[in-house]
């Protein structure tokens, strides 16, 4: 019962936050509200006993990405307010997507159902053998780093590549800044 009440409370807060994200026109408040949104999401994950996911969501979603969004918002030209455009197409899109999602949700297995397909494939094996074999209590770590080592390697490379891409796009001149400076100075002297 407590579980349900907390979940209900968090999800209604989520709805309120979403409404205000939709309603505000100031960019910086949208960023702040998005941070609040992901923090609420991580609270919901804690309520669902998915502590690792919640931790990641809190650190990455509401921590770093909010900072990056603030930085990006600070770089945008001032004075331009986000005007409300014609909402009709987006409302139709939103309604149809939510209808599809509701239909899908009706076909999902119940929350915590032990006979759900995802709990029958390899999960019982992992849960059973990992503690005796690894002597590491956190099964999530075992799955992430050992059973699914290739996936995690791929994820790390994805993050690395994303970093490389951003560096290549945004800071093409930072390394040459000093040399350019010297060159320009020489040109000016001439």
């Amino acid at each position: 019962m407590n579980f349900l009440l907390i979940n209900f409370f968090l999800i209604s807060l989520l709805l309120v936050t979403t409404f205000f994200i939709f309603k505000t026109t100031s960019l910086i408040s949208v960023v702040a509200l998005t941070g609040a949104f992901t923090l609420l999401c991580s609270a919901i994950y804690v309520n669902l006993d998915a502590v690792d996911v919640a931790f990641t969501e809190a650190a990455v979603g509401s921590g770093i990405s909010t900072i990056l969004m603030v930085m990006a918002a600070a770089k945008l030209p001032e004075g331009k307010k986000n005007k409300l455009i014609n909402l009709f197409p987006s409302i139709i899109l939103a309604v149809s997507i939510s209808l599809i999602l509701i239909i899908i949700i009706a076909n999902l297995p119940l929350l915590g159902d032990p006979n759900a397909p995802i709990h029958l494939h390899v999960v019982p094996e992992y849960l059973k053998e990992s503690k005796d074999f690894f002597h590491i209590p956190n099964v999530v770590t075992n799955i992430l780093a050992s059973y699914r080592g290739f996936d995690t390697l791929g994820e790390t490379i994805v993050i690395f590549t994303a970093g490389l891409g951003v560096i290549a796009l945004l800071t093409s001149n930072t390394l040459n800044r000093k040399t350019n400076f010297k060159k320009n100075n020489k040109k000016n002297e001439r």
Binding site: K75, I136, T156, G163, V166, T171
Partner: peptide, 28 residues
């Protein structure tokens, strides 16, 4: 397995931390 997992997690942590710092620097 212990050694492997610790080393691998160290690699992940190093990459993630430095990429985040690099992202911030690029944006800023």
């Amino acid at each position: 397995q212990h050694i492997g997992i610790i080393l691998v997690e160290l690699g992940v942590g190093m990459t993630v931390a430095t990429v985040m710092i690099a992202l911030y620097h690029s944006f800023a």
